[in-house]
Amino acid sequence: MSYANVIYDYQGEMDNSVLNKILVSMDTKMAELGEKVPFRKKVNSILIECCQNLMHHAMNPEIHPPSLQVLKQDNGYLIRTTNLVNKTNATKLKSYIDKINTMDKDELREFYQKILTNGKISAAGGGGLGILNIARKTIDNRVNYQAEEVNTDQLLFHIQFVV
């Protein structure tokens, strides 16, 4: 029988001042739960990617604010994010995550290096490196997703994985 406790739950607009508060709070909570510094740093580095994805890619955050939840489970920390995306972007994102989910740890590292050295820099993000970097750090090298239709053009996109 598994158990899960919500240790962080946030819904609202996201910026780096919110992110910094999340990092401090999560570090304190994980320390209280007996987690060692390298693991806490791993979780927080993933939270940086997740929250900045929400910052740069959430549509209409004032109407559909993005959300972040962290749950402590018996196999690690489950991290879940939700944000509104348009269907075209959701299709691209699904296909990118499906591709990543076929790769093992070494293949992910190799793919990361390829994108890092050949990809273009954008102001908003690392050109697909964020989600790839997350997959490199999850317990099974997988990122799960689910899409929930909001209207004809938009979806609520849920991403979930365990660290």
């Binding site: 740093k41 900045q52 690392g126 490196l129």
Partner: peptide
Amino acid sequence: DYFNTSSAK
């Protein structure tokens, strides 16, 4: 200590 993926580039 930390860097994000856009900093990585």
